[in-house]
């Protein structure tokens, strides 16, 4: 279990986290999602006890990260961004070192743990090679193997697939999903399909705030209504649709041929809405070219949230 409560952190005058809270239950795979510089890495560094927050608390695996970092660290596996490793060590030496630092005996009783982790991560055949000579994909997986040696309850992975080629990405995702069966996993990424492919839930962090938190199908629930019609201008179209959209913002864009396209979010699956829109447009005597519903992708949710945050920031200035 991971519980972050009102985490705050600033670097000088830059606010990295402005009160981040979330809760991750045992056995969940959660994606910490956000644009670069949103505070994902800072959050993870705090959860692992590497950084002290300026304010707020976090409990990981039942222990406070500030008061009992060693208890937390004994129960987690953490892969920092870019999987930092010692290039001069052999891959096998590195795993041996990580095992010894975890109080395991890689030369004796726990030798099979090491080999199992290597097998699971698909690095058995490179254990005798210097890490510096391995490809990025192998290095990432050596780093990953180093985090699961002690069979931790919780895995914290910072951008585990960044810099990998598409095949390697698929492999690492598969690995994460497999490990997620009996572990709690939190992974950060700015790649949306990553979350859709591996996670059951996403926590979206933008500018140090949690902007959304929920199951993926919940976050992407609802649809977008698209109406392309012959309204004389954007204002007239908005006015015509105003009482039908249930308070949603109507985006307008010219669609060529003197037509306008209007988009707005609809939350329920009200089938009759399309008919009401068609009737309204007919009443005004406008032509109607297109009336359709789009599913919202996580990409859209993400973009909407980023834009809202950006607009709020602009407004404050």
């Amino acid at each position: 279990m991971i519980e972050a409560c009102d985490l705050r952190k600033s670097y000088g005058s830059t606010v990295a986290l402005a009160g981040v809270s979330f809760r991750i239950e045992r056995g969940e795979i959660v994606g910490l999602l956000g644009p670069n510089g949103a505070g994902k890495t800072t959050t993870m560094k705090i959860l692992t006890g590497y950084l002290l927050p300026d304010g707020g608390t976090a409990r990981v695996a039942g222990h406070d990260v500030i008061a009992e970092p060693l208890e937390v660290q004994a129960r987690i596996g953490y892969l920092p961004e870019n999987a930092p490793l010692y290039p001069d060590m052999l891959a096998g030496e590195y795993l041996g070192f990580m095992a010894r630092m975890r109080g395991l005996d890689p030369g004796g009783a726990d030798a099979d743990r090491l080999l199992r982790a290597a097998r699971e991560c698909g690095i058995s055949e490179v254990l005798g090679r210097p890490i510096g000579q391995l490809s990025k994909g192998y290095r990432q997986r050596v780093g990953l193997a180093g985090t699961i040696l002690h069979d931790p309850e919780i895995l914290i992975l910072d951008e585990p697939t960044s810099g990998l080629d598409p095949n390697q990405i698929v492999e690492v995702r598969e690995l994460i999903r497999r490990m997620g069966r009996d572990k709690t996993v939190i992974l950060s990424t700015h790649i949306l399909p990553e979350v859709e492919a591996t996670c059951g839930r996403a926590v979206i962090v933008i500018d140090g705030h949690v902007r959304a938190d929920g199951a993926l199908d919940e976050l992407t629930r609802g649809q977008v209504q698209v109406v392309t019609c012959g309204a004389p201008d954007a204002e007239a179209g908005r006015a015509a649709l105003a009482d039908l959209v249930d308070g949603a913002t109507i985006e307008a864009a010219p669609a060529g041929d003197g037509l306008w396209t209007f988009r707005f979010a609809v939350t329920d699956r009200d089938g009759a809405l399309a008919e009401r829109i068609a009737a309204r447009i007919h009443d005004r005597g406008w032509s109607l070219r297109e009336l359709r519903r789009d599913d919202r992708t996580l990409e859209q949710v993400f973009r909407e949230l980023t834009e809202t945050a950006f607009a709020a920031g602009e407004g404050a200035r």
């Binding site: 560094k45 590497y50 060693l70 660290q73 987690i76 490793l85 010692y86 290039p87 990580m98 630092m101």
Partner: peptide, 14 residues
């Protein structure tokens, strides 16, 4: 420089 300090300092070691 290598970033490995983060690996070391998040191991359960004093």
């Amino acid at each position: 420089k290598q970033g490995t300090i983060e690996v070391l300092l998040t191991l359960p070691a004093r």
